[in-house]
Design a binder for these strands. Structure first.
Lengths: 345, 345
DNA sequence: TTCCTTTATGCAATCGTATGCGGTAATTCG
DNA sequence: CGAATTACCGCATACGATTGCATAAAGGAA
């Protein structure tokens, strides 16, 4: 085959097309945009232009439009950790929606850090996009407002705690689900020493889930043992570490709730590594219901979220605003959670 | 807090900064670019400009530079399936490298389809980027050449089968690893009826791995039983289906090799669902060594690749070309694979 | 003083596309 | 038959930043 030697051939522009079709560049633009701006185009001219486009292999340069402040045909998405299966269906849903509208998606990882999230914000300010989908852990409403003002894009977020008048928000009713699940753990399964693997207080999700957990204990009249609270970083490794601390206690918990499945799985591994048994020695309850939850043995009992649905809702919300189908105040969509009882409890 | 009411405040441009600092827009550009183009800038002027930048909160509009054909500060990455854990470390590695250079990454899923891959190519032609990282399954060298010519970006790919004179390629020595692993399966573990879960012939990776598998059988003098070859689509579900077919055979295989871990895990699940036992009834061998491979029970014996390393190498190769540190012919980097013996065989 | 550097800054073109406005020819109407 | 539409198309500008070239002031040498 013929391979390119020239370092970079100049791109085919509208002007090239115009020259070949013997029309002006504006005419080419009008033919291609299709949008009827009141100026009609002769059928024969249209043909010539389309032919020229075909023979030259013309593709529009999207940067030009972006510069002019038109549509960018680009979405930006910020997630905490692309390696966490929980986010995959969300990313997929967003990308699928994007593809149907011929949009591209820029994805950024934040590693749950504030620096990562701020970097994303600044990146989007430098390169404004039509729609922004966020899974923020640290961003304040002021940050999000800045995003909105500086980029003019439509914004949708995941997270109970986001409450911006112009941002659509999706969230699971995790508090309710946790309250029910822990209560079930206590009443039906008879556990009274329950360990909690959470995250540092800087995550409002973590704080909320911790609150729900505490509330369940309170309602059951179970005292709080500080040694039964450990901190992880959402990863399976950190779940293992936390569990190891629990197991070295003089009186380890009989059940452990981890606020995400990755940590729960790590915790289960740690239990089994000491020769102990799940759920007989220690029961484990997770949160998210990622695919590996059904792969581990025993299968993980967990609280399911619906990330596909969440992604779909966020993408829809954003596109509705992009296409002007909705322009009112920020909407809040609640997606239910539900307990999935398997074998680890 | 103060929330935005204005739909879209006009962005802060260099001209605004220039006005505030009482200099021309070109001067602002020179101060900010920092690059010494032979034209010096007075220290006092520089101060004034930086101050103005600060007070106005100026951020450059990256589209302007992109339009001028300058650097775009953007990488495009194409992967088959963001939900396959195998790709995560690769994506992460690329994104980490990108971040250190202040680059953003656009990610596209292709779902292993040719349409998806073509859509990516066209998307990148419309929006050229500095660097392109591909995990191609269907793209021909002509397609990749077009990418190169039309965008002028640096290209790195994953995959033995890509052989373009200007594209850097990373690949694992999967043939060798498979040959060894299957031989081991035969000699050390005594298996002679080995099932193969592959993919359709349109994937060259699939064909190559199938070839290595056949070669191992040939070397061991084992005949080929057509009923022991099943086709999947890389997903765990498809692995389960394939295994079900095997199990319904009058004489099922005693071992099954799946060309990726996801299918292997699905296959194991299928075995266990029928009450049978892995590895005693059916041994399962996978490929990739994704994290869930150590979470399942029995733990999956598999051939490990090094996706982090692969991503790192590709990102490096691309950035070396972007920054002009390398500009020679396409390089080929081999990353070793190795058998990880666990419990499923 | 005159001429020539050196230093510091501004002007203007450019990238590719969209679009308001003006222009020309053909057609219709009174 | 002259005037008013209508149908069609091109000119020129704008978007925001980079950059070659011109310009202006200051300083040094002759």
């Amino acid at each position: 085959m013929q391979q390119s030697d020239s370092p970079r051939k100049r791109a085919v522009t509208m002007r090239d097309v115009a020259k070949l079709a013997n029309v002006s560049q504006s005419t080419v633009s009008r033919v291609l945009s299709g949008a009827d701006d009141g100026i009609p185009i002769g059928e024969e001219t249209r043909q010539r232009v389309m032919e020229a486009v075909e023979t030259l292999g013309y593709y529009p340069n999207l940067y030009a439009g972006s510069l002019r402040g038109q549509k960018t045909f680009m979405l930006a998405m910020m997630v905490a950790d692309i390696a966490n299966p929980f986010y995959h269906p969300m990313v997929r849903a967003v990308q699928d929606a994007a593809r149907t509208h011929r949009y591209d998606v820029m994805i950024a990882n934040t590693d749950h850090t504030r620096e990562g999230e701020m970097a994303f914000v600044e990146s989007v300010i430098r390169r404004p996009v039509d729609g922004i989908i966020l899974v923020p852990y640290h961003l304040t409403e002021a940050d999000i407002d800045r995003l909105l003002v500086r980029t003019g894009g439509a914004v949708a977020t995941l997270g109970q705690h986001i409450n911006h008048p112009q941002v659509d928000t999706v969230y699971g009713d995790d508090e309710h689900a946790i309250l029910e699940a822990i209560t079930w753990l206590i009443r039906e399964r008879g556990h009274r020493r329950i360990g909690f693997i959470g995250v540092t207080g800087s995550f409002s999700v973590g704080a909320r889930r911790r609150g729900a957990f505490l509330e369940a204990l309170r309602q059951a009249g179970i005292p709080i043992y500080p040694e039964l609270f450990e901190i992880g970083d959402w990863s399976s490794e950190s779940g293992g570490h936390a569990m190891n601390v629990f197991l070295s206690l003089p009186k380890p918990p009989t059940a452990v709730f981890a606020i995400n499945d990755l940590m729960a799985i790590g915790a289960m591994e740690a239990v089994q590594k000491t020769g102990r048994c799940v759920p007989d020695d220690v029961a484990v309850l997770g949160f998210d219901d990622i695919p590996p939850a059904t792969w581990v043995r025993p299968r993980l009992t967990t609280i399911a979220q619906h990330p596909t649905e969440m992604g779909r809702v966020m993408a829809n919300a954003v596109f509705e605003r992009i296409f002007g189908k909705y322009s009112g105040p920020g909407r809040r969509f609640e997606v239910p959670c539900r307990l999935i009882v398997r074998e680890s409890v």
